[in-house]
Design a protein around this nucleic acid. Structure first.
Lengths: 111, 111
DNA sequence: TAATAATACCTAGTCTCTCTATGTATAATA
DNA sequence: TATTATACATAGAGAGACTAGGTATTATTA
């Protein structure tokens, strides 16, 4: 919550790839979904999300497509590319490694 | 390892407070201890560690004291301040919250 | 109906943090 | 004697999160 900013760097890309991996999503939806699924913990700012999405797209991990709603509203849906999927798999295992290492320090069993 | 840089931001302060909380330590020792305890995962660069220690000291969370070894070598031992201890407690619980939220996204149980 | 809130996208500039590269100095080892 | 390990330090580059601002449409509410 308050202190989240610090732990955020580096987790952002994983979170976005993960969500978009479930199903194609648009930016605003991602913000809401992240908040819902994390039970209110993640509250991405637009100034964080949109640049992050653009970075992922430039890197070829996701691809965005504009869609016009019946109402006339425009949304940019992002879906995972093949490369994005393989990076997602990689990032999941990196998260596990990081988690393991952190717990060795943060929750000490002994000396 | 390779990708650690990303996940690192924000965990550094917690790791340092944690280690120094176990016992007063000096910089070089912290690098070695972090690597040992994390079974090789954490390999802090000096350019990361020393500025981080200085930040923590400026913030009043740790305090450094020069000590001269019998050999003549100088080491700067850091110990936790009271404020540092309370922040450490806080950071431990923040880590738990972050971990919980991440796992809700990264390891989905359902929709 | 008018005002407000929610939806939906965007970015320039600031701030903070990690890392590279570099410097200094001593002790231990080959 | 030369090299490696120990021990500290910082300037500058690069990356990413956030603030603060902008545009536009739709839905709600007073």
């Amino acid at each position: 919550m308050a202190q989240r900013r610090e732990l955020m760097t580096g987790s952002t890309a994983s979170l976005l790839l993960c969500l978009i991996g479930y199903q194609p999503m648009y930016g605003y939806q991602i913000i809401k979904e992240l908040e819902r699924r994390s039970q209110g913990y993640f509250r991405f700012k637009e100034g964080t999300l949109y640049p992050a999405l653009h970075r992922l797209e430039r890197a070829g991990l996701i691809q965005g497509k504009w869609q016009v709603m019946p109402s006339g509203q425009q949304r940019k849906y992002y879906h995972l590319t093949e490369k994005g999927l393989s990076i997602l798999v990689e990032k999941r295992s990196q998260w596990q490694d990081f988690l393991t290492a952190m717990n060795l320090i943060i929750q000490p069993a002994s000396t």
